[in-house]
Write a protein that binds this DNA or RNA. Structure first.
Length: 636
RNA sequence: GCCCAUGUAGCUCAGUCGGUAGAGCGCUUCCUUGGUAAGGAAGAGGUUCACCAGUUCGAUUCUGGUCAUGGGCUCCA
């Protein structure tokens, strides 16, 4: 007799040991069809496992997040089977689930993207067969025997602590696996192989080079298509493509990983920076600037020479060794020490949009997202220990304000003390509690990453979510307990004694370059008016009206509206189309009527045209809209 | 840095089974003077096909190396 307790605390008793599937069918056939796995007293198990003890049961159905991981793991098995069918010599290694799907690393001759179709066809055969996943537990000895031809699996088996080793069999295919799996391969309704890349066994360059086959899978075909659509959409938004098309920035062999910003890109850059400055000024920050090239002695003192040397560019000048800064903080330390501070001066919030260089691996570079030269919208906050909470809270509020301005939502992650760290237990506790208290007061849920903090202090990372739902870590608030110590920073307390300030190191955009790239993709090139590189384009209807168009441009320039005249000898239709596909928010046409009446004809992005608008009546609402930094399209 | 792929006009790309290159867009000029999503024609543009070697009578094409870009690995903002 087994007693099963359901999540709603109802109970059901079974004479014989039921499998999870039996219990599910007992609820209803339809429900059972949607079940993927079950949790028995919080252990995730296959549905065909018999339940031998009284237990709490919780079914994982196709709608649960966990179900997708189970499906994808099973899909990895199916893909592996398909590969083995086509390439019997291939040796499987590991096949985990990743964020957007799964992969399997396989020791086999290189395959090309063209071969994926063939493998997919084989996968479809396996799916059609609706093969069940059968679990088998064998002894270590048996397992070693079964996988005797596969050195990778043998290595894995030898590392397993358990003497009992579980295998899964679907069709003729057997793989070493912890499970659980979906009931049968037929549940994989949407599967697609995405790409191939090389990978090393155990990510170790000295070991075997493997073929990594990436795929993704869903419970229904529609979801797969949505996902594929998202990828297509992301491709269209690729900031590298849009950056070229919209004439914003470029990269050149002469400076790999370092962006050239074009005039239009700089207009956007400056709009971003103007906003940043306004928001920080309002938040009680001052702005500072420190040099790019600093003496080696400073980097030795800060610890960078020891810990960050391989990422730093160095140079010898007058027999002295210098390094280009990879971070702004050491310079900030020198700034702090230029005068003495009273507790009354704290907190001191010193911002710096600092240009830093980091020698990233050549293979890691990627557009504006991963560069070797970038600007951090840095700030160092020096404060007393009891100011931690309010200051951190202040940074969180400022970050929220700034991200909102772009329509970006975000989530928070707290990282605590890592194994290798400096500072005392008391300091860490004080610092971590300060962050937690700030988070609590901020009132938003957050994730904790135990042991993921920097060696010099705990931190809060802010991950933003863009219009396609992709997340990016941009902001970070780090408590630094090392640098104030190393540089012997002090302030005079009420007691007339010297005290050590606590320092916050924080960024909100993170890297200006990367944030710029994220915005290009977030808006897909359709920037809100205040950011748009070209806010208005003036189109003379006929060539002889070009002079008047230039005349109008002068007025708009003077008003501070970024505008251009399209003076090509092309038809109005063509010029309008181009302005419209590039999302120029305001399209002004100038004809005889406008010239005579000294008015404008304005077309907005909704395609509507307003004729006879006086220049004053145009400038006023446009400037208002820019000043508000509204995300909505401007409509006159 | 490592693996794979790619590198041809400002952009997107075609092509040459080895005999010194082409399209569309863009640009210039001309025709057109057009009132809200692509008017027409002609022309200029490649230090000759990323760079450096090698093979060859001859290389953009084959081979090797270098650099860069892309996708991964690794790392991180």
């Amino acid at each position: 007799m087994v007693t099963i307790t359901f999540p709603d605390n109802s109970i059901k008793q079974f004479e014989q040991f039921p499998t999870g599937m039996d219990v599910a069918v007992g609820i209803s056939e339809g429900f059972a069809r949607n079940c993927v796995a079950m949790k028995i007293d919080d252990r995730l198990l296959d549905l065909h496992r018999p339940i031998k003890n009284d237990a709490h049961i919780n079914f994982i159905t196709v709608n649960d997040d966990q179900a997708l991981d189970i499906l994808r793991h099973s899909a990895a098995h199916v893909m592996a089977e398909a590969v083995l069918n086509l390439y019997p010599e291939a040796k499987l290694t590991i096949g985990p689930v990743v964020e957007d799907g799964f992969y399997y690393d396989i020791d086999m001759p290189p395959v090309s993207e063209d071969d994926l179709g063939k493998i997919e066809a084989e996968i479809q055969k396996i799916i059609k067969a609706k093969a069940t996943f059968e679990r088998r537990v064998v002894s270590r000895q048996e397992a070693l025997e079964i996988f005797k031809d596969n050195p990778f699996k043998l290595e894995l088996i030898n590392e397993l602590a358990d003497q009992k080793i579980s295998l899964y069999k679907n069709g003729q295919f057997i793989d070493l696996c912890r499970g659980p799996h979906i009931p049968h391969t037929g549940m994989i309704k949407g599967i697609k192989l995405m790409k191939i890349s090389g990978a090393y066994w155990r990510a170790d360059q000295s070991r075997e080079q493997l073929q990594r086959l990436y795929g993704t899978a869903f419970f229904d075909k529609k979801k797969l298509n949505q996902y594929l659509h998202l990828i297509e959409e992301a491709k269209k938004r690729d900031h590298r493509k849009l950056g070229t098309r919209l004439d914003l920035f470029s990269f050149h062999d002469e400076a790999p990983g370092m962006a050239f910003f074009h005039a239009r890109g700089m207009d956007m850059w400056n709009a971003l920076l103007d906003y940043w400055r306004a928001a920080h000024r309002a938040g009680g920050y001052v702005e500072t600037k420190t040099p790019v090239l600093l003496n080696r002695k400073l980097w030795e003192k800060s610890g960078h020479w020891e810990n960050y040397r391989e990422n730093m560019y160095t140079s010898v000048i007058d027999d002295e060794e210098y390094a280009i800064k990879p971070m702004n903080c050491p310079g900030g330390m020198i700034l702090f020490k230029t005068r003495s501070y009273s507790y009354r001066d704290l907190p001191l919030r010193a911002g710096e949009v600092g240009l830093v260089h980091r020698h990233e691996l050549s293979g890691a570079l990627s557009g504006l997202f991963r560069v070797r030269s970038f600007h951090q919208d840095d700030a160092h906050i020096f404060m007393t220990p009891d100011q931690i909470e309010t200051e951190v809270l202040g940074v969180l509020h400022l970050s929220e304000k700034i991200y909102r301005q772009f329509g970006l939502t975000f989530h928070l992650e707290l990282s605590t003390r890592p194994e290798k760290s400096i500072g005392t237990d008391v300091q860490w506790e004080e610092a971590t509690n300060g962050l937690k208290a700030a988070l609590k007061q901020y009132g938003k849920e957050y994730i904790i990453n135990e042991g993921d903090g920097a060696f010099y202090g705990p931190k809060i990372d802010i991950h933003i979510k863009d219009a396609l739902g992709r997340t990016w870590q941009c902001g970070t608030v780090q408590l630094d307990m090392a640098l104030p110590e190393r540089f012997d920073l002090t302030y005079k307390g009420k007691d007339n004694e010297k005290h050590r300030p606590i320092m916050i190191h924080r960024v909100i955009y993170g890297s200006m370059e990367r944030f710029f790239g994220i915005l290009v993709e977030h808006f897909a090139g359709k920037f809100p008016l205040w950011l748009a590189p070209v806010q208005a384009v003036i189109l003379p209807i006929t060539q002889d009206l070009t002079d008047h168009a230039e005349f109008v441009k002068k007025d708009l320039d003077a008003a501070g509206i970024r505008c251009e005249v399209d003076h090509r000898n092309e038809t109005l239709k063509k010029k309008i189309r181009e302005a419209q596909v590039n999302y120029v928010p305001l399209i002004i046409t100038i004809g005889e009527k406008e010239k005579e009446s000294q008015t404008l004809s304005v077309r907005t992005l909704d395609g509507k045209v307003k004729m006879g608008v006086g220049v004053e009546d145009f400038v006023r609402p446009v400037l208002g809209h820019i000043k508000e930094r509204t995300l909505d399209d401007i409509i006159l």
